[in-house]
């Protein structure tokens, strides 16, 4: 699958680098990302501070590392939550059809009808700020997209002979759904997960940029973007490095998703 698949190769390389930075950022950064230093304000990128420093003299590279960690964590949890619920809802509706399908899919439609940012906004105004509430809000907003994909796959596989034979051997519905059908849908679900991760990165960035997502002392890429724009003229490296990191993150996962989709053809 990897051989000759350029998208997958480059995608893996980029996401690999970003992932290493994210994991590293959890434990170690070159400088303390929140330590201010009035002697080193607005320093341009140099060997000492490779991404330069900001208005408080904080090391931008350290902050970017921390920011990737937070963004990564939020996106991962969002995708995990959306996918877990989405798979269960999709499996139930696709497999059983009928009234279960009607009810759950109408709820799904209702959730889809709200723009995800608006939905997240409502959630956060109810639950308050903080990264865990961002995860919860985005997770709920992401459920329908997964449910829809999983549902159509389950509906397709339900009629296949291997499912019938499993049923004939007395396998329970739960076993058929999760042991027999689910592994067969991975080729469709995997790219969807990766694309979903991208959307989560963008959604988190948007929320934090609007000031309703992550709050100080937590740092996320979106939060940094909104912080850095005030100093665009004096410290352009801050906004550029942060923006470039987001682009890289999205690009890497887009290529990965594209590569996975090509791999299954």
């Amino acid at each position: 699958m990897l051989k000759g698949n350029r998208y997958l190769q480059i995608g893996l390389a980029i996401t690999g680098v970003v992932t290493v930075l994210a994991v590293l950022g959890l434990f170690w950064t070159p400088y303390d990302p929140s330590a201010m230093n009035s002697a080193e304000m607005y320093m341009a990128p140099s060997l000492r501070h490779i991404f330069g420093t900001d208005n408080f003299g904080r090391d931008v590279f350290s902050r970017v590392m921390k920011g990737i960690s937070t963004t990564y964590l939020i996106s991962l949890c969002t995708v995990a939550m959306g996918a877990a619920v989405g798979v269960i809802v999709g499996a139930l509706t696709g497999y059983f059809g009928g009234i279960v399908d009607d009810i759950l899919m109408r709820v799904n439609d209702a959730v889809t009808a709200f723009p995800s940012i608006l939905l997240a906004l409502v959630f956060i105004s109810l639950l308050g700020f903080g990264k865990y509430n961002v995860i919860l809000a985005l997770g709920v907003a992401f459920v329908p997209s997964y449910a829809r994909v999983v549902r159509s796959e389950f509906a397709r596989h339900r009629e296949m002979n291997y499912v019938k034979s499993a049923r004939l051997m007395g396998a329970t519905d739960r076993r058929i759904m999760f042991v027999h059908i689910l592994p067969n849908t991975r080729a469709v679900i995997l790219p969807t997960l990766v694309i979903g991760f991208n959307n989560a990165v963008l959604a988190e960035a948007s929320l934090s940029y609007l000031g309703i997502g992550v709050r100080s002392p937590d740092v996320s890429l979106g939060y940094m973007l909104s912080e850095s724009q005030s100093y665009m003229a004096t410290a352009p490296w801050y906004v550029l490095c942060t923006g470039a990191t987001i682009v890289l993150l999205i690009l890497g996962f887009s290529l990965l998703g594209e590569g996975l989709q090509q791999g299954r053809r």
């Binding site: 296949m160 002979n161 291997y162 019938k164 034979s165 499993a166 049923r167 004939l168 051997m169 007395g170 396998a171 027999h180 592994p183 067969n184 991975r186």
Partner: peptide
């Protein structure tokens, strides 16, 4: 009684087996 009292063999053997599961576990299913 499904699978215990009655065994079933279909027309298309390829489609009657789960493509991502090894043969052994599928034989053991019942």
């Amino acid at each position: 009684y499904q699978g215990k009292e009655i065994g079933v063999v279909f027309q298309e053997p390829m489609s009657a087996l789960n493509p991502v599961m090894r043969i052994g576990p599928q034989v053991e299913e019942s």
